[in-house]
Design a protein around this nucleic acid. Structure first.
Lengths: 191, 191
DNA sequence: CTGACTCCTTGATATATATCAAGGATTTTT
DNA sequence: AAAAATCCTTGATATATATCAAGGAGTCAG
């Protein structure tokens, strides 16, 4: 139930057994079904979610009602809307369950307690957020000035796992192209 | 010479006078002129740069030779390529000086020393990177599914200071539109 | 098992933006 | 002071992609 979390933490920092126990106790397991919302637009994000099993995605809805996927999260990944979480403001993003999932939920009070009491957790969290920043910057780099075909080629190269687990209309949205355009690009790749 | 840095740190954490002295000593002041490179594609990024005065921007160059601006940095901001910095791999980004600048340079060894020896610095750095992540995510949200006009409107609302200090061809690049399109959008805003 | 729903693709057409070209104003360099 | 370079805008044309429409295959719910 905490395997992936333990693995993730140990990949970056070392915890004593007591520290690990304290850490574990701070999380609340939560099972969610496909299509359920972890977070909805207008709410304040009060938790960080770690994905033990399953998949989530975050998206916003524009003024015309179109969804735009910001991010996916699979096993071993964290998901939240950090802006809302840190500033206590209503979120503009929705977080929805893509596959039935087992999550570990860390609320703000426990997060801050761990930051105060476990220096290793502060370091772990800094590293996680650094890595998230780097991934997001790569996403920006891969989008600017690229054609739909170039975007798809980069996705195939860097994150082929998306294509196995995510419906293509969500992949298209994540890339910033229409589902029809993505279909045409995929067809041209098969030639 | 360290005013903005002190201000930035004190905005988030408290340092004793000794801690501040230790911190100050870790930075190396550097003056740079407009058009000089702080970092060039292919090099490994070995420093973090804090902007005391002036402006920088980072960009990549695509296969057709077009520049795509990823980020600007003004007084009080940090600039680096974090991917290269953390992984010791050659950078795909260039960092160039937009206005004559006074920078405070923190190399990796000093950065890690501060992380190890000053818990307040680790906390400060975590907060800085969190804020950077939030800003970058907002950039992604403001780009997906938006027309050129919507992108410009959001920029005017959220970062009007860019328009005062940055040539419009770089603003256009940052927004992912051509300079001509940006001109047309601006003309329609004046009506 | 059947009907409803979801997912994906393809064709036809519309459109937002890129590209190419040109010129004027301002700034920088000599 | 003059020449060169940079910055910005506008006009004309090209094109990548969106949009609308339709249909087939697979999955899910009843």
């Amino acid at each position: 139930m905490f395997e992936k979390l333990k693995e993730s933490i140990h990949e970056h920092v070392e915890l004593t057994d007591e520290e690990w126990e304290m850490c574990k106790k701070s999380f609340r397991p939560k099972r969610m079904l496909k299509r359920q919302f972890l977070l909805q637009e207008g709410d304040v994000c009060r938790d960080l979610a770690f994905v033990e099993k399953g998949a989530l995605y975050s998206y916003n809805v524009d003024s015309k009602g179109n969804q735009h996927v910001i991010r996916f999260a699979f096993e071993g990944w964290w998901m939240a809307n950090l802006e809302s979480f840190f500033t206590n403001t209503p979120t503009r993003l929705n977080i929805e369950v893509l596959e039935n999932s087992e999550l570990l939920i860390l609320d703000k009070a426990n997060h801050e307690k761990l930051l105060d009491e476990l220096p290793a957790y502060e370091r772990y969290h800094r590293i996680i957020i650094q890595n998230a920043y780097v991934a997001l910057q790569q996403r920006v780099e891969n989008a600017l000035g690229q054609t739909a075909e170039e975007k798809y080629a980069l996705l195939v190269e860097l994150s082929p796992e998306f294509l196995n687990r995510v419906p293509l209309n969500l992949v298209a949205s994540y890339l910033g192209v229409s589902p029809e355009t993505l279909s045409r690009v995929r067809a041209s790749f098969r030639r």
